[in-house]
């Protein structure tokens, strides 16, 4: 007889299987359309041609380089801001703040994670853009730096809360040993707690990068969406996500252009897969030392 126990087991198994099937489905769909694209347009053009110009009259070009560089630039810029600020905030929350301060600061950090990306995009247009234009004497502050700042804000909650966990999981005995040797709190954090928490902090950074690479709406709104090879952080850029989101709505189904956007998506998928695998690798390393 088909017992109830057995039924529940299968039910949960199907739920778990679902995520795997969906992930596999996404990958196969991307791969299929990407391969179609490479039948029409060569791999060489995709990776060597700089500019994405699908609607050019004479000859459309499908180069991913400019938007790849844009994505990396905006992400690196975001991390340059978010990593020190995030680790600093995590160190403060875990090592310095009184329990009372921590109690109201932590929920605020988590609240920041819940702000919709569209709202952060508005912030970029209304506040960060004009600010950058004024400080650096630019005609417009809608550029890569603006995107970096916004993505930093969006990556911060992830970096802070995961790093804070890494700090708090460092055994108290390390801190005691350091203090007992006459180390100050600052020396203990920098030379003992931080190195011991490093694998966990690297996980935090990887998750932050993943968040920044995949973010679409804010960069679409605040970086200017210019499909040219950027030369500085003051140039307007169009990231891979922004190009896909802005063009997929008006493309002819089954055209080169249509399949091209999937190829961009596939590359993005591979990048974030790599970032996640790195995070996983650091995570396993952390467990070994704990």
């Amino acid at each position: 007889m088909f017992s109830k126990e057995r039924f529940v087991q299968y039910l949960f198994f199907v739920c778990a299987l679902m995520t795997v099937v969906i992930l596999g489905g996404i990958f196969i769909m991307l791969l299929y359309k990407t391969l179609k694209f490479f039948e029409l347009v060569g791999l060489g053009e995709f990776f060597l041609e700089r500019i994405w110009k699908p609607s050019a009259y004479s000859k459309p070009t499908y180069g991913v380089l400019a938007m790849l560089v844009s994505t990396l630039m905006v992400t690196v810029g975001a991390m340059v801001i978010a990593i020190p600020v995030g680790i600093g905030a995590a160190a403060y929350l875990s090592e310095v703040a009184s329990p009372h301060v921590r109690e109201w600061l932590k929920p605020l950090v988590e609240l920041l994670a819940g702000v919709p990306s569209v709202a952060i995009g508005f912030l970029g247009i209304v506040l960060v853009g004009p600010f950058l234009a004024k400080v650096f004497h630019l005609s417009s502050g809608i550029n890569a730096l603006n995107g970096s700042i916004l993505l930093a804000i969006m990556a911060l909650p992830t970096i802070i809360s995961v790093s804070e966990d890494a700090f708090s999981s460092v055994p108290l005995s390390y801190r005691e040993a350091s203090c007992a040797l006459g180390a100050t709190k600052w020396q203990t954090i920098v030379w003992v707690t931080l190195p011991a928490a490093l694998p966990g902090i690297l996980v935090a950074v990887m998750l932050g990068i993943g968040r920044a690479v995949g973010e679409t709406m804010t960069v679409l709104m605040a970086t200017g969406n210019a499909k040219a090879m950027p030369h500085s952080f003051f140039d307007s850029v169009a990231t891979m996500t922004a190009v896909i989101a802005s063009e997929i709505g008006e493309v002819d189904y089954g055209s080169e252009h249509y399949y091209g956007l999937f190829a961009v998506g596939c590359l993005l998928f591979l990048i974030s897969l790599l970032v996640n695998l790195l995070a996983d690798y650091f995570n396993s390393k952390m467990r070994r030392y704990a």
Partner: peptide, 9 residues
């Protein structure tokens, strides 16, 4: 200390 606590260095 009670439990040996060398740094992970």
């Amino acid at each position: 200390f009670q439990k040996p606590n060398p740094f992970p260095k």
